[in-house]
């Protein structure tokens, strides 16, 4: 748990908004939280979501599976370290929380061409019947490890380590250039 205030500074270079006719847009997700949730071998995702919804209904229970018994819990609210301590205390003892808000950042790639752009970097099949809204995959975009989550039909959220964010940002802008 962090015991110091975070200075909230964007991980991305200043960017230019896409033109009106562009079929793609890339934007940072500002604020919010990313919390790494770790469970034991017998953890059950449905039970975890239920527990989170009960303990912290204001934060939503958007958990994205990153590995067996590991998830990223993501939301748009700001969570104080005191609140986080409370949540940890309320969770069943098989789960542990690690705040990753400082270390992992989110960005959103939207527009009709978003799937085509992502397909240049990852080989995970993002077609709607295999990768539904709300589904996540931990994968690589080029050489950068990232988690892809489908938010809407034509909108994806990416979670990436902060120190790689600038690089991925540049790479995605290159990949999207033909659609701007």
């Amino acid at each position: 748990m962090r015991d110091y205030p975070l200075e909230n500074r964007g991980a991305f270079p200043p960017h230019v908004a896409a033109g009106a006719g562009a079929s793609i847009s890339l934007a940072p997700v500002k604020g919010g939280f990313v919390i790494h949730l770790l469970g034991d071998a017998k953890s059950d995702e449905a039970a975890l979501k239920k527990a989170l919804a009960k303990i912290a209904p204001e934060l939503g229970a958007d958990v994205r599976k990153s590995a067996p018994n590991q998830w990223f819990w993501v939301g748009d609210a700001d969570v104080s370290s005191d609140r986080l301590t409370e949540i940890q205390a309320g969770l069943p003892s098989q789960f542990a929380l690690a705040d990753q808000t400082h270390g992992r950042v989110r960005m959103r790639l939207s527009g009709p061409s978003s799937r085509t752009v992502l397909a240049k970097g990852t080989m995970v099949d993002l077609s709607a019947d295999l990768f539904a809204i709300g589904q996540s995959a931990m994968t690589q975009i080029g050489h950068i490890g990232a988690m892809i989550t489908r938010i809407e039909d034509d909108s994806f959220e990416l979670i990436v380590l902060r120190s790689f964010a600038g690089s991925l940002w540049d790479e995605l802008n290159h990949m999207a250039a033909e659609f701007r």
Binding site: S66, A67, P68, A137, M138, T139, Q140, G145
Partner: peptide, 15 residues
């Protein structure tokens, strides 16, 4: 022929 190897899924689930 057949060979058993350790592979780490470093770019995915890290198992």
């Amino acid at each position: 022929g057949e060979h058993r190897e350790y592979w780490h899924h470093s770019g995915g689930c890290r198992r």
